[in-house]
Design a protein around this nucleic acid. Structure first.
Length: 573
RNA sequence: GCUGGAGUAGCUCAGUCGGUAGAGCACGUCCUUGGUAAGGACGGGGUCACGGGUUCAAUUCCCGUCUCCAGCUCCA
């Protein structure tokens, strides 16, 4: 049986339980979703956490009674009459949205009836393992201006074991939460009360991780023919009016006045790159022009959407803009996709999903431009033989985009890379190049990020690795532990030798027991621990303890260094 | 922004049915010199998120604000 059918039926049973407990509650919708199901209710008093237990109890009773799910077809006017009589106004609203002349309903037990397409399980007794998970508010039909309903989330599996595994996965994910791990590992933190919400502070270790990411990116962009640029953090409002961002996102932009002139804290890097492109006459010979910037931008996101490093108000994009000839469009897109894949591989991600997002309702540019832009993206994907889903109407206001979502160690999806094809801004800013025939023509502009926001990507990495970064990314690659005071001097020598080889170390010379220092070094997730006792000192060796693998015995210092340098050079995982 | 929940030491939390607070870890000092995941003793540390109100007295009750959490909506 389909899991979604089981879950959908379970949501009916939940609705039935709620109706038995609170008869005046009105039902909205209750579908199955990726990890379970929910049902939206209209109830005056809010549900409490205790109510969840009560509802579960009632559901168990219904399941024990093994009530059949009975399907009936009704003429729409009969259905309207039925749900009207029951006072289920959300159901009558739904019926009015269904074009068909007849609709189906499902009856369970003596009183419960729900408008539903089905299918369902035969009877409630088929539910073997379920759990209600959480309460939330949700707008009717998901529209912000509609009344808010109360949603109960739950999940259901075919066996108790699968349910237990799912719940334990949730626990695992919680343990990896970057909002806990980041501060605990002294990587980064936010100081909401003092600095304001959504602003990230990198502590030394987090700043090191970021430096390593940035080093990789700069090196790789230069290798792939990008030129680095740097643009200011504030620019006059007129520039944003011209680009269209001002009209679309004014509410989310930080604006202020200086000497009567309005300025904007940059929320995007594109206008800056456009100005640089426009700084001189461009020949078709020099295209494609590729500008790369680690551009820090500020967006005034609504308070309720902020989330750790995933959704912040100040962040840095690994942003690039490619200005190219129409004939170069597809090869440039393919090159970017290749860049995304190779970058993700370097950071330890193997699995990715691709989505193509098309023209949204509110947008700029002509139909023809949109057709060409979307076609360019789609054909490139096809040429590369990549599978993708279409996300209708989810493009940027100036162009369609390819989103590449990576899957982490817990198979969770993260939106990072995006490639946007833009005919609109080149037109708005009157970008040109001189073609072979001497005529001025308009280049196509590609916007793209690989990691997206560096902040977001660091959060993703933190959760993917559960804080145990691979050697090349680890902020501290080895913790050096002198066994006794007599080895502090030797520890300093070892540290210096490692320093000279650009291996990042810390010496723990505190007056603590070896066990404690090892415990703390392990908890800091350092890839290596070097224990230095009298034996090592005498022999010029280091006793190597590898993260997760444990004690590896003693090796000569130079051998250890050579081994690490090799691993780091290959960016091994 | 919306719905619901929450804010007590650096962290995890207890507590006060109104009389200005406590544990473990962390931190400091001393003792201990330990061979691969927590040695011992003592000690310092709090405007109980912030602002107002009620009260002889507010961390506790009331109102407002801020921030966080679970979602919804949004994400150039």
């Amino acid at each position: 049986m389909e899991l979604s059918v089981l879950r959908h039926s379970c949501s009916h049973i939940m609705a039935m339980a709620v109706k038995e407990l609170w008869p005046d509650v009105h039902l909205a919708i209750g579908p199955s979703i990726e990890d379970g199901f929910y049902y939206d209710f209209d109830k005056k008093e809010p549900f409490s956490d205790d109510d969840l237990a009560k509802i579960e109890q009632k559901m168990l009773e219904i399941i024990r009674k093994d009530e059949p799910f009975v399907r009936e077809e009704l003429k729409r006017k009969d259905a309207l009459e039925l749900f009207g009589r029951l006072g289920e106004t959300y159901k009558t609203a739904l019926i009015n949205e269904i074009p068909d002349e007849s609709v189906s309903i499902y009856k369970t037990g003596s009183d419960f009836v729900d408008l539903c397409r089905g299918p369902h399980i035969e009877s409630s007794g088929k539910i073997k393992a379920f759990k209600l998970l959480s309460l939330a508010g949700a707008y009717w039909h998901g529209i912000e201006t509609n009344p808010m309903l109360q949603r109960i989330y739950g999940t259901c599996f075919e066996s108790q074991k699968e349910l237990d595994d799912y719940l334990s996965d949730l626990e695992q994910a919680k343990l990896r939460d970057h909002r806990k791990l980041g501060p605990a590992l002294e990587l980064y933190d936010l100081y909401q009360d003092e600095a304001g919400p959504g602003l990230v502070f990198y502590h030394p270790k987090g700043a090191m991780v970021r430096k390593l990411i940035e080093d990789y990116e700069k090196e790789e962009h230069l290798k792939r023919g990008y030129k680095m640029v740097i643009t200011p953090h504030i620019m006059q409002a007129g520039l944003w009016q011209k680009s269209g961002h001002y009209d679309f996102y004014k509410e989310n932009m930080y604006t202020f006045k200086i000497e009567e002139k309005e300025f904007v804290l940059k929320p995007m890097n594109c206008p800056g790159h456009i100005l640089i492109y426009k700084s001189k006459i461009r020949s078709y010979r020099e295209l494609p022009v590729r500008f790369f910037e680690l551009g820090t931008v500020y967006r005034h996101e609504k308070a309720g959407v902020l989330h750790g490093l995933l959704r912040v108000r100040g962040f840095t994009q690994d942003d690039a803009h490619v200005f190219c000839l129409p004939a170069q469009l597809k090869s440039e897109i393919r090159a970017i996709i290749d860049f995304v894949f190779s970058t993700m591989k370097v950071f330890g991600f193997d699995s990715m999903d691709i989505e193509l997002s098309t023209r949204p309702e509110k947008s700029i540019g002509s139909d023809d431009d949109w057709r060409q832009a979307t076609g360019g993206l789609e054909e490139s994907l096809k040429e590369l033989g990549l599978k993708y889903d279409i996300n209708e109407g989810d493009g940027a206001f100036y162009g369609p985009k390819i989103d590449i979502k990576l899957k982490d160690a817990l198979k969770r999806s993260w939106q990072c890379a995006t490639i946007q094809c833009d005919f609109a801004l080149p037109k708005r800013f009157n970008l040109t190049y001189v073609d072979a025939d001497g005529k001025e023509k308009q280049p196509i502009m590609l916007h793209r990020v690989l990691l997206g926001s560096v902040e977001r990507f660091i959060a993703c990495l933190t959760e993917h690795y559960a804080g145990a970064f691979p050697l090349w990314l680890a902020p501290v690659q080895a913790v050096i532990i002198p066994l006794k005071e007599a080895q502090i001097e030797y520890a300093a020598q070892v540290k210096q030798a490692l320093d000279e080889n650009f291996i990042r170390t810390e010496v723990d010379s505190r007056n603590e027991t070896l066990d404690r220092k090892i415990r703390e070094a392990e908890m800091s997730k350092a890839p290596y621990i070097l224990v230095l006792g009298g034996r090592e000192q005498k022999a010029g060796t280091v006793s190597v303890r590898k993260r997760k693998a444990g004690d590896q015995g003693s090796v000569p210092l130079q051998e250890f260094i050579a081994n690490l340098k090799l691993q780091i050079a290959h960016r091994e995982h």
